[in-house]
Amino acid sequence: MISRYKIVLFDLDGTLCESGEGILNSAKHAIQAVGFPVPPPEIMRKFIGPPMGQSLQNFCGMDKELAEKAVAIYRERYNRIGWIENRLYPGIQELLKDLKASGAKLSTASSKPKPALERIVQHFGILEYFDALVAAGPDGFHSSKPEMIEQAIRDCGGAQKQEVVMIGDTHFDANGAVEAGVDFLAASYGYGTKEELAAAGAAHFADSVEALRPYLFIDEN
């Protein structure tokens, strides 16, 4: 197999890992701890992907000071137990292995704080496949997906924009790829909807990890 791309970038939550249970359990715990009602499931689903502080402000109506308190509570539970309420999507390890064997360089571009991301990829035994790990800052509020994509490209040694693809499951990933000028492949098996992904510019959708392969490899036969 030959990789279609020189550099392949992955979001973490909803793309590499089915991590919703731990994120949502920890977010609900934090929201209740500061005295706010837990939003309905269709709103809570939107907490998976963006920085937690941003989501607490946008979806719960918290001010920044209270959101900072809630982020600390969220992080305490997530770091203690939430990160283990998590699993790799079936086929991810094999996909990463095959991409590396095909000559691609791999990096994350995730809104999860880097210490948590590093612990998760180490726990699941996939750290060895990555040439770089790019993630959000520690404050739980700000992360620029286009900046992370640019950083990941640099950390992987550089490439032309047409030689890079971003794989993610939310409109944040799609918008970031469009702004950064790289291809985007929607992991529609994740937590974003096809409607939001299409509205953000996604043209190619994979409903399973296996369905990513035709977009990532050139068949030599």
Rank of each mutant, 00 (worst) to 15 (best):
H142T: 15
H142Q: 15
H142P: 01
H142Y: 15
S143G: 08
S144H: 08
K145A: 02
K145N: 01
K145T: 04
P146G: 07
E147Q: 13
E147A: 14
E147S: 04
M148R: 01
M148S: 06
I149R: 04
I149F: 05
I149M: 09
E150C: 04
E150H: 14
E150V: 02
Q151Y: 10
Q151R: 14
D155A: 08
D155G: 02
D155W: 13
D155T: 00
C156E: 04
C156N: 10
G158A: 04
G158K: 01
Q160R: 15
Q160E: 14
K161D: 13
K161Q: 14
Q162M: 13
Q162D: 15
Q162L: 08
E163S: 07
E163W: 02
V164P: 05
M166F: 03
I167H: 03
G168T: 03
D169N: 06
D169W: 04
D169M: 08
D169G: 01
D169C: 05
T170N: 03
T170S: 11
T170P: 04
H171M: 12
H171V: 08
H171N: 11
F172H: 15
D173N: 03
A174P: 09
A174M: 13
A174C: 15
N175L: 14
N175A: 14
G176Y: 05
A177F: 07
A177D: 01
V178G: 06
E179H: 09
A180K: 06
A180N: 08
A180G: 09
G181D: 02
G181A: 01
V182T: 12
D183I: 00
D183H: 14
F184E: 02
F184R: 01
L185T: 06
A186M: 05
A186Y: 00
A187C: 10
A187M: 04
S188A: 11
S188N: 02
S188K: 05
Y189N: 08
Y189K: 06
Y189H: 13
G190T: 05
G190P: 04
Y191Q: 11
Y191T: 11
G192A: 00
G192I: 01
G192C: 02
K194I: 00
E195F: 06
E195A: 15
E196Y: 09
E196K: 15
E196R: 10
E196D: 15
L197T: 10
L197N: 10
A198Q: 12
A198G: 10
A198C: 09
A199M: 11
A199F: 10
A199V: 07
A200G: 01
A200Y: 03
G201T: 11
A202M: 07
A202N: 02
A203L: 14
H204N: 13
H204I: 05
F205N: 03
A206Q: 04
A206Y: 02
D207T: 12
S208F: 12
S208E: 12
V209M: 10
A211C: 05
A211Q: 13
A211E: 12
L212R: 00
R213T: 03
R213K: 15
P214T: 11
L216C: 06
L216Y: 03
F217L: 11
F217R: 03
F217W: 07
F217C: 03
I218K: 12
I218C: 04
I218L: 14
D219Q: 14
D219A: 14
